[in-house]
Design a binder for these strands. Structure first.
Lengths: 151, 151
DNA sequence: CAGAATCCGTAACGATACTG
DNA sequence: CAGTATCGTTACGGATTCTG
């Protein structure tokens, strides 16, 4: 526990990345962590990437597939992904027009790390929910011990 | 293209996850992708995890380390991580009080997938920026071809 | 069908001032 | 030192309407 760290693997790399981050200018654009990770954090982005893995999809298909997105947000997220070269957009000049979204090569390269994050999320969802319940319980005890429950 | 897919690795897993996702109720809490990934998308969360990899840090230390966060957001992000069992919070009853944040065991397990995502972001930041420039150029051409530049 | 444009509510975030 | 409380802004995102 006090000797050379086990460093299961990612530790060193993450620590290094953070050191690079600290040494960086604050500006958004030049920092991968801010610039890229923030994008992936946008509400529907990763979900849409997931939706495009199997095969290209049309706009309305994605719209149906993700039941609670608005057309506006769907358009925005797809534009965002298109801008970054994660997906490509193909317009078929039919009437009415059909538009197909397809995972670009660059998008395909992110499936591996994305799969790892998703797997982690699925594996640990139960633990996280349990932790939240514990936290809520402890919080209730703190405010319940000397006063009345609030909020 | 029409035979057994190459599936560089993550593809199948992501596609499977998406199928599970589609089959899920829409509610936020029961879905790992929504419930967990959305959390990690919160603005400072992953950055703070990165900051805690090497060693525990005190509140003011984190505050200095991340130059453009507000105390309010720092507190919120740390609470969020504490709730989910990603970090633990230790209060030393000195005067003035010292508070230390430390990566919890659960938090340590996410370093591996997080490192993969960060590495991807760093490796492809250049490509992404290039894609954005191309997109902007194409956009300028579209509106410049028959009208005047806007925005 | 695939969007663009408009309107609007909410929630996230920052800045500041105050507290144990 | 480590927060909390309050305020104000902004930006995200949903609902709706209009268009080629």
């Amino acid at each position: 526990m006090k000797e050379t760290k086990p460093s299961p693997a990612g530790d060193l790399r993450v620590a290094e990345s953070f050191r690079r981050w600290v040494a960086m200018p604050v500006d958004q654009a030049s920092c991968p962590v801010r610039d890229v990770l923030d994008r992936l954090g946008e509400k529907w982005v990763t979900l849409l990437v997931m939706a495009l893995v199997e095969r290209p999809r049309r706009f309305s298909e994605l719209f149906r597939l993700v039941p609670d997105i608005s057309k506006r947000s769907l358009t925005q997220a797809l534009r965002s992904l298109e801008q970054d070269g994660i997906v490509t957009r193909h317009v078929f000049p039919t009437t009415p027009p059909a538009v197909e979204y397809r995972l670009a090569p660059l998008g395909a390269t992110m499936l591996e790390p994305l799969a790892a994050m998703i797997a982690w999320a699925e594996d640990n969802h139960g633990r996280i929910r349990a932790a939240r319940r514990r936290y809520a319980a402890a919080e209730a005890k703190r405010s319940g011990a000397s006063g009345s429950a609030s909020s």
